[in-house]
Nucleic acid binder design. Structure first.
Length: 431
RNA sequence: GUGAGUGUAGCUCAACGGUUAGAGCACUGGACUGUGGCUCCAGGUGUUGGGGGUUCAAGUCCCCUCACUCACCCCA
């Protein structure tokens, strides 16, 4: 008969141990998922280096002003999403919400513009934005980004976009859409903005609440609104393409023709708006329908004035950033994970065998072979089961018999064949 | 910041307001004393997220709170 169990720790003052969780919107990355991350990072490095991009490691905290000035004071990122703190001396510092500004700061501070142009860099690492988490959106998220500084040649735009395409192809991703747009330069963009303001000025009252706000700080965004009434109201609104200056128009046309030349399938999306103020001319985005509302897996564009803003010489530039979590999620649903497996598992019976196993394991490891050994004196059966679970290539079995005969038994798990070899030859067996 | 949904074993999920909250997977052992995968048997685990309330009785109903999820906003 079973009895009701009395709770343990009757006199415990605390009701329960405090449980620690990662902060909201911040997640741990561990095996097996981490292997996908490694694959993405390695692929990026391989592909980007064939285009001459080299790694640059900028800090993840900067003076707050670096982001305010570059991203724009009235953007959502700066207004409400930055992790900003005071350090012990009272300076305002911020965890980077994006990677371009720190890289440009580094470029200017270290006079990298004195090196042959264009200079091409890639980076990867965590970014931080204080947002409400949802699918594909986190407070600490990872980006791989590239930046090419020092050329306004449209070839660079096309090359950069086609490099992104190659990267995504290498990962085996399908069903992605490339969207490109031009948002003009500091000369022609104000004209377009004014035209939009004019167009919507008498329709203001009927716009949705969000669009009324957009009218004030970013009227281009009204073109992107999902509310039915706003969609109706914007029929006949002025188009960016009609307002590009001749320089921007030509640049855009060349980029498009080169994208054709490089077999990048794309669509022009004239309503695509970037969230950061520093973009000029070419902007682009890679989207998918497989990720829910956060559909951009990578995005970027030109920023021809940013280096000057940081006090450097006139230096046109272009770059993009890839959302790691979003790429990883796509790979998880479409690909099988390649989990690394040990080559050898050593199963032992008895204490003398355990010592022998340690010696053999070490020797094999010195030769670069991944070896696991059985622990805690489990039965041979359970050790073999563990080897099977780990998908080990071979099991070596060592017991009293083997020690007295001087031969170790081996078994190949894929087909069950087995045999034995002298201890002294075990070291060479797996070469 | 706004709105909606969900919290039960390590994981995936059951349980009309009514005994001691169950099952699969996984884990460990055994059948097979030194040979994995298949099969069968056995074994352990829960403060039902937390707190309060209604009730003879709450995993189940109500309130609060926390966490997670999705969406809006925005973005990679």
């Amino acid at each position: 008969m079973r009895h009701r169990r009395e709770p343990l720790g009757l006199s415990s003052g605390r009701s329960s141990a405090e449980r620690y969780n990662a902060l909201k919107g911040i997640q741990d990355i561990y095996p097996p998922e981490v292997f996908i991350w490694q694959k993405v990072e390695n692929t990026a490095k391989d592909v980007f280096s064939t285009y001459g991009f080299q790694e640059l490691r900028a800090p993840i905290i900067e003076a707050t002003d670096i982001f305010v000035r570059s991203i724009g004071e009235t953007t959502d990122i700066v207004e409400k999403e930055m992790y900003t703190f005071s350090d012990k001396a009272g300076r305002s510092i911020t965890l980077r919400p994006e990677g371009t500004a720190p890289l440009v700061r580094c470029y200017v501070q270290n006079h990298l513009y004195n090196l042959p142009s264009p200079q091409k860099f890639f980076y990867s690492g965590p970014m931080f934005r204080y947002e409400r988490p949802q699918k594909g959106r986190f407070r600490q998220f990872y980006q791989i980004g590239v930046e090419a500084l020092g050329s306004s040649d449209p070839k660079l735009d096309a090359e950069t976009i086609s490099m992104l395409k190659l990267f995504l192809e290498r990962l085996g991703l399908k069903g992605l859409n490339f969207e490109v747009n031009s948002i003009g330069c500091e000369k022609c963009r104000p004209d377009y903005k004014n035209a939009l303001l004019n167009f919507f000025s008498d329709k203001m009252n009927r716009l949705c609440l969000d669009c009324k706000r957009r009218y004030e700080y970013n009227p281009l965004r009204i073109l992107d609104c999902k509310v039915d009434e706003c969609i109706k109201l914007r029929v006949g609104a002025p188009q960016v393409m009609d307002f590009l200056c001749s320089g921007c128009r030509t640049h855009f046309d060349v980029v498009l023709s080169l994208l054709h030349l490089l077999n990048v399938p794309f669509e022009i999306n004239t309503t695509m708006v970037r969230g950061l103020d520093y973009y000029t001319r070419t902007t682009f985005e890679v989207t998918t329908k497989q990720l829910g509302a956060q559909n951009a897996v990578a995005a970027g564009g030109r920023y021809d004035k940013l280096v000057e803003e940081f006090g450097g010489p006139p230096t046109p530039a272009i770059g993009f950033a890839i959302g790691m979590e979003r790429i990883v999620e796509l790979l998880q649903t479409s690909n099988k994970q390649d989990i690394p497996n040990p080559k050898v598992f050593i199963a032992t019976i008895g204490a003398p065998a355990e010592k022998e196993a340690l010696i053999i394991a070490n020797r094999l490891r010195e030769n670069g072979i991944w070896v696991e050994i059985g622990y805690a004196g489990n039965s041979l059966k359970s050790q073999l089961r563990k080897a099977d679970r780990l998908s080990a290539g071979y099991v070596l079995i060592i017991g009293d018999d083997e020690i007295s005969s001087g031969k170790v038994k081996w078994k190949r798990l894929s087909d069950g064949t087995q045999g034995e070899i002298p201890f002294s030859e075990a070291y060479d067996f797996f070469q």
